[in-house]
Design a protein around this nucleic acid. Structure first.
Lengths: 193, 193
DNA sequence: CTTGCTTCTTGCCATATGACAAGATATTCC
DNA sequence: GGAATATCTTGTCATATGGCAAGAAGCAAG
C-alpha cells in the first residue's frame, strides 16, 4: 500500500486495502495562503481539515467586538468546528490561515458515510472529539485555577513553536488576557531566568 | 410499547420494539443519597447516568487544594465524565449527589455494543457529546469575555433552579470566583432591581 | 431550647489585570 | 531604501476580584 499522508492520522493497518484506498482518495489536498479563511462565522461547516503543514487559528468576535483566539492548529492536528460540522448548524467561529497551509479536507456527507460504515474510522473520530473536549476542559480549569503567568508558562512548555510564529495579541486572547499584560508577563519571565 | 423513562432521552420511535426493549432493559435504575459519590478521582469511569430526579455536581481539586465545580446535572441531563468513560482512563473528576438522586445507568461495555450496533443510538450519543463540547466552549468564551456579574446573571436566567439548591460556594467556583465575591455580586444585583 | 456547624455577609486592604496612550521596533510594500 | 503599517513595549492610573477575618444567620442534633 502506498504511503499516504493520512497514515499519520489513521491506524491504516485496521482497514482493508480497498477500504483504505477509498478513504484516502476521498480526502482532497488543499492549499491556503496566509490570511485565507477556511470557515467564516454564520456558515455551516461542510469540511474539516487534516493539517500537513502551516498554522491555523480559530477565533470568535465577542459582543464587545474583541477578537478572541479559540485555538491554534498545526501539523498533526485536525482543524474543525465540531459543533457546526456535526450538527450542521451555523458556526460562530472563524478559521483562518496564519501562514501558508497544506491540508487534506473531507466533506460532511463523506464523513458520515465513513463514520457509520467503518468502525475504526468511527472510533478514531470519536477519540479526536473526546481529545478536543478534554483539552478544552483542561484549559477551562486552568483559566480558573492558574494565574496568567502560569498559563503562559504552560503554553511555552507545550507548544513553543506557536510563540515564535503567532502575533502576541492573538496569543494573549487565547490566554484570556490583553496583549499589554502578556508583554509584561513575558518580560518578567525573561528577567527571572 | 410501555412508556419507559428513557423515552425522554432517546427518540424511541427510531428503534424496533425488540431493539428498544433490549436497550431499556440494559439500563439499571439506581438511587443515591445526598453526598454519595458516583465517581471519584483516580477511578476509571465505568458508567454514565441518565438523571430522573435530583442534582449532581462534578468537581475537581486544583493543585492548591481548592474545590472547583465543573458542572451540575439535573433531570434530563446525562452525568458523565466523557474522557474517562470513552477513553477508559483514570478520571481527574468527582461526581457527587447534592440531593437524593434517582437515575438510570449504563456500563461501558454495553454502551460500546449499542454505540457500534445501533445507528440511532450512535447519533444520539455523538449529539450528546457535541452538545457538552459546545456548552463547555460557550462557558470558556464567557470566562474570558464577560465579567463575573454577567456570568452570574446568565446562570440565573438559564438555570435558576440551581441557585436555590446549590450552596453559594459551589456555584462561585463554577463561575470562576470566590464565594465572597459571589455574595457581593448577588447583593449588587438585588439592589439594582 | 441550646449547642455546635455550616453557610452567608461584610469590612478592610492587597493584587492581578485592564484601559488608554505614547513610543519603539519590526514588517511589508511600492 | 523609505514610507506606511502592524507589532510590541512601557508608563500611569483604574477596577475587578481575592485574601483574610469577624460576625450573622440558618440548620442539625442532642
Amino acid at each position: 500500500m502506498a504511503e499516504h499522508f493520512l497514515g499519520h492520522y489513521f491506524p491504516s493497518a485496521q482497514f482493508s486495502d480497498d477500504d483504505w484506498r477509498m478513504i484516502t482518495t476521498a480526502f482532497e489536498q488543499v492549499r491556503y495562503a496566509k490570511d485565507d479563511h477556511l470557515l467564516q462565522e454564520g456558515a455551516i461547516a461542510n469540511h474539516y481539515w487534516f493539517i500537513e503543514s502551516g498554522i491555523l487559528r480559530s477565533y470568535a468576535i465577542d459582543p464587545k467586538g474583541h477578537d478572541l483566539s479559540l485555538d491554534f492548529f498545526t501539523r498533526g492536528d485536525v482543524a474543525i468546528d465540531w459543533s457546526s460540522f456535526l450538527q450542521q448548524t451555523p458556526t460562530r467561529e472563524n478559521i483562518q490561515a496564519l501562514t501558508e497551509v497544506v491540508c487534506w479536507r473531507l466533506d460532511f456527507a463523506t464523513f458520515q458515510q465513513f463514520f457509520h460504515g467503518f468502525e475504526p474510522f468511527r472510533e478514531a473520530g470519536r477519540a479526536r472529539l473526546v481529545g478536543s473536549y478534554f483539552a478544552l476542559k483542561r484549559k477551562s480549569v486552568s483559566m480558573i485555577a492558574d494565574q496568567a503567568k502560569d498559563r503562559y508558562r504552560q503554553l511555552l512548555a507545550e507548544r513553543p513553536h506557536l510563540l515564535q510564529q503567532v502575533p502576541l495579541k492573538q496569543l494573549a486572547s487565547y490566554l484570556g488576557i490583553t496583549d499589554t499584560s502578556l508583554s509584561r508577563i513575558r518580560k518578567e519571565i525573561m528577567l527571572e531566568d
